[in-house]
Design a protein around this nucleic acid. Structure first.
Length: 279
DNA sequence: GCCAACGTTGGC
DNA sequence: GCCAACGTTGGC
């Protein structure tokens, strides 16, 4: 059955290797269709491989003054190798992948519409952090609020391609259509749950005195890196049963570290930040 | 531009 | 295999 997605892009100018990686909803609207190149994160890549033509996606503005959902899109082409990874001049060049064994993939998305009301991340956080809905947005209901609260966008900000469940999708669509929160103060309140800790002077529980360690020398180059080849198995072989590539292990639990496991999570590439696409 | 969150690296 | 140093994302 059809799934829903969220993809991030950066609406503000940012120069990477001499090129501007900006891609705003305005850019998206004007080009209409864009390949989503530059994703250099295994988990995000695996999600893109799951995307089917016609499935819907939220277009999110990231790393900018007012982050939030700016528009709606649709998958117009399913995953295929991201050739920009082989272009040394490209901002997201990855020297470790070759054309015989594509590591990175992209999809194409087609712009559908702008959000009539831009849905700021701060609103979603507000909904997630408060147990009761203000009258202005009561229309999303408790189940809507609960769906927002469970969104990866809220619980784990850093993934640039995310799945969105149907209820959350409906709720975002509702918010974008109806608005109503412009009078609300979305800033997190001091007293309540304090998400951002002011920074303690040091935790220093447990061990009494950790001895200093020798400086760690970072390897700049890998010799030939065998690296995690596991990554390829999800693609190449198995002409049979596609799937099984990535098993989303409930990214929840504690604040503890997330399982990295084969190719599900990390970013190995020089790339920074979100998903991007270019005009 | 700061810095929290969180993922990765690699010495021990 | 623990865990401190390091690197990166991305909200603020």
């Amino acid at each position: 059955m059809a799934k829903f997605w969220l993809l991030k892009a950066e609406p503000d100018t940012r120069i990477v290797k001499g090129k501007d990686v900006k891609f705003s909803v305005d850019d998206f609207e004007s080009v209409k269709t864009s390949p989503w190149e530059g994703v250099r994160n295994y988990e995000a890549r695996n999600l893109m491989k799951e995307m089917q033509k016609g499935e819907k996606a939220l277009f999110y503005h990231s790393n900018c003054k007012v982050p939030g959902i700016a528009g709606f899109a649709e998958v117009s082409k399913e995953a295929y190798p991201d050739f920009t990874a082989w272009d040394p001049a490209h901002p997201y060049y990855d020297p470790k992948t070759d054309q015989d064994d594509p590591r990175w993939f992209m999809v194409e998305l087609t712009f559908k519409s702008r959000a009539q009301n831009f849905v700021p991340l701060a609103l979603l956080r507000y909904i997630a952090d408060n147990s009761t809905l203000p009258p202005e947005i009561e229309y999303i209901g408790d189940t809507g609020a609960k769906a927002i609260k469970a969104m990866d966008l809220v619980t784990r900000g850093r993934l640039s391609v995310q799945r969105v469940d149907g209820k959350a999708w409906d709720t975002i669509v509702q918010l974008a259509e109806k608005g109503g929160w412009e009078e609300l103060d979305l800033k997190p309140k001091k007293g309540g749950a304090a998400p951002r800790q002011p920074k303690k002077e040091k935790v220093a529980q447990k061990k009494e005195k950790p001895p200093p360690r020798p400086q760690r020398k970072r390897k700049v180059k890998e010799e030939e890196e065998s690296e995690n080849e596991s990554e390829s198995e999800s693609w190449e072989e198995d002409g049979d049963n596609v799937k099984k590539a990535y098993t989303p292990q409930k990214a929840k639990g504690s604040t503890k570290r997330r399982k990295t496991e084969d190719n599900s999570t990390n970013d190995l590439a020089p790339r920074r930040r979100s998903t991007r696409a270019k005009a």
